[in-house]
């Protein structure tokens, strides 16, 4: 579980995060949603420790990151897997080498064990052997995301962070990635935090959602509660698409009939 308490962060005197508190439970997909520029990525990078927060607490199962020394943070990061917006696979390495990279850096496994683990992780994200020796530039965006997930789970992380996992993907592939993230979270009881503004993801995997508006937490709930909220900012965000207006209208009609 990750808990953040009263987190503030500013850049050059401008407050980007203001008094944000939230609990991200393990075994659940926790979503941070909000418009572009609302502070989602800054919040995620602050939670990971890539940004140093001005004040507040970030507790990884009770371990407060801002109080930790560099070496301890380094150690903690080996328990963290991250899926970046652009996959961030290493260009100069093949898919197999990318997945084996964290194992080579941090485990004392033999070459055979590492290869077995690599095959297992790539198999888990449904990438077959034909992709093992391809470079990231030779595979599709969806495959890159899956390879990046495989790399993220190679060291059996306790915490998984996904920054805009569906950006640049078609709706069908997005659905595959969302389901994969949810399955892995439940299967390994990982604390997963997903940063997204994709409403399809919200409706598919949003078990615990916090909505960020101008650096402040404006709403918290789950995917079943999101349509019934009275929060104007959230409604502006959710119903920006006509599709979800129609979904809500249909829901209201069904409820009134009942």
């Amino acid at each position: 579980m990750i808990e953040i308490q009263n987190v503030y962060k500013s850049f050059d005197g401008k407050n980007v995060l203001k008094n944000i508190s939230a609990i991200f439970e393990s075994g659940k997909t926790n979503l941070i949603i909000g418009q572009s520029g609302s502070g989602k990525t800054v919040l995620m990078k602050s939670i990971i420790g890539l940004h140093r927060i001005d004040s507040g607490k970030i507790l990884y199962d009770g371990r407060n990151i801002p109080d930790m020394q560099f070496m301890k943070i380094k150690k903690l990061r080996q328990e963290v897997g991250m899926l970046f917006q652009g996959s961030a696979l290493f260009d100069s390495q093949t898919v197999a080498q990318n997945v084996m990279f964290p194992l080579e850096m941090f485990s004392n496994m033999t070459q055979i064990d590492m290869e077995n683990r690599m095959k297992f992780c790539l198999g888990r994200v449904n990438l077959d052997e034909s992709t093992y020796n391809l470079f990231p530039s030779e595979i599709s965006g969806g495959m890159q995301k899956r390879a990046a997930i495989a790399r993220a789970i190679a060291l059996n992380p306790r915490y998984l962070f996904c920054d805009e996992p569906n950006s640049g993907l078609d709706p069908l592939t997005s659905l595959v990635i969302d389901r994969l993230i949810k399955e892995i979270t439940e299967e390994y009881d990982i604390t997963t935090i997903v940063n997204t503004h994709d409403m399809n993801s919200v409706m598919e995997i949003g078990e615990n959602i916090i909505f960020i508006k101008s650096g402040e937490k404006a709403w918290e709930g789950n995917r079943h509660q999101i349509f019934d909220s009275n929060n104007d900012s959230l409604n502006d965000f959710v119903f920006a698409s006509d599709l979800y207006k129609k979904v809500k209208a249909t829901n209201n009609i069904q409820e009134s009939k009942q």
Binding site: K75, R77, G86, F90
Partner: peptide
């Protein structure tokens, strides 16, 4: 520089690598 803008350096940092 390309590794920086494509977040590959961030990926190394997140893994706990200098």
């Amino acid at each position: 520089g390309s590794m920086r803008i494509s977040e590959q350096i961030d990926a190394l940092e997140v893994m706990g690598i200098n």
